[in-house]
Amino acid sequence: MLRQRVITGLVLAVVVFSAVLLLPSFWFGLAVFAVCLGGAWEWGRLCGLHALGRRGLYVAGIAVLTALGIWLAFGAGLLWPVVIGVLWWGLVLVVLAGYDPQARTGNQAHWRRYGLVGAGVLTLVPACIALIWLHQMQPALVLYLIMLTATADSAAYFAGRRFGRHKLAPRISPGKTREGLLGAMVAIVPFALLGAGYFQIPLALWFFFICLCLITALVSVAGDLFESVLKREAGAKDSGTLLPGHGGILDRIDSLTAAAPVFLMGLLWGAVMAR
């Protein structure tokens, strides 16, 4: 299993880095759009849309909404398709804080299922638009965001194993600890400093950029936890089997779906990078 996971991880890294650095923004956008639809297919299954026709309609709906959002963002120059994603993840933080896995009966379970179906739209559409936007600004920003979320995840894992004592979200993911989260935040600071230097961000904006990276890393944890909620509700260990040793598409992009809209809006709001 470990050997399979490592091989898949290396192949994914090569494919992703090549796509980000070598593809023009149009083709990169199509690739991200395809990944978004693959994630929608898995999301629909986890939400109980087991009939292929119903799941196909769900994916088609997300495709249409994503295309509309892309047109609004790049054709009309509107930010609100991404702003909705930022607001959504603020709401997710509240939902995660009050999540009760035992409440699965009656109307509450019924409405929770419909809520998760809608959550797929709010999760995948803004993330797709944000990643395409970041690539148009500068492809290296996409790689930086991917490495930022990976750094936070790895640091949280190792810090949690070494120092973990207090559970972060025991009702959702018993393996995550507060000490692990703190370790992730500590690791992000030097990574943010490296990013500020690489992107030649004005010195006056370094503090803002570091704070943005910290907030982005925190929100990426929410993305991970929310997918855990989705899988818990479905009684599934992984979102799919497409990636041997890693699970499905959602298992690889859960943190990124939350981080991308927040990172982009922070850059634009703080005028850190040119729009």
Rank of each mutant, 00 (worst) to 15 (best):
P261N: 06
L37R: 05
S18H: 02
C47L: 07
P81E: 05
W41M: 08
F26D: 13
P202D: 15
R3Q: 13
L78D: 10
F263E: 09
S239C: 10
L230K: 03
L141M: 11
V95I: 14
L12H: 03
G195C: 10
T66P: 02
R275Q: 14
F226T: 10
L250A: 09
C128R: 00
R112I: 00
Q102E: 13
Q102A: 13
L23P: 12
L131C: 09
G223A: 06
W71N: 11
A127N: 08
A60V: 12
L203D: 11
R3D: 12
I253K: 01
Y157A: 10
L116G: 12
V15S: 14
R54N: 12
A109N: 10
A13I: 14
Y58D: 02
V92F: 05
A13C: 11
A258W: 06
V83I: 14
W41I: 00
V94R: 12
G180R: 00
L131K: 07
T216Y: 09
A19L: 13
V229R: 00
R5F: 01
P174F: 00
W71G: 08
L212P: 09
G115W: 02
V189E: 04
V189P: 06
L96W: 01
W88P: 04
L212V: 09
L21K: 13
R104C: 08
P101C: 09
L68H: 06
I62L: 15
A169R: 01
R5D: 07
A31I: 10
Y99K: 04
D224E: 10
K231M: 08
C128S: 15
A119I: 02
P261Y: 01
L46I: 04
A156D: 04
A260Y: 00
I129C: 04
V189G: 09
A40E: 05
A127F: 03
L168K: 01
L30M: 15
R45L: 14
I84M: 13
A67W: 14
P202T: 13
R5H: 03
M273D: 02
L134R: 08
V15Q: 06
R113L: 12
D100G: 07
A184N: 02
A109H: 07
L131V: 14
G235R: 11
D153I: 06
L145P: 03
I249Y: 11
Q136W: 12
A60E: 05
W133R: 07
G39R: 04
Y157V: 07
G39D: 02
H110T: 14
A271Y: 06
G77V: 02
D254K: 03
Q4L: 13
M137I: 15
Y114V: 12
F74G: 09
A222W: 03
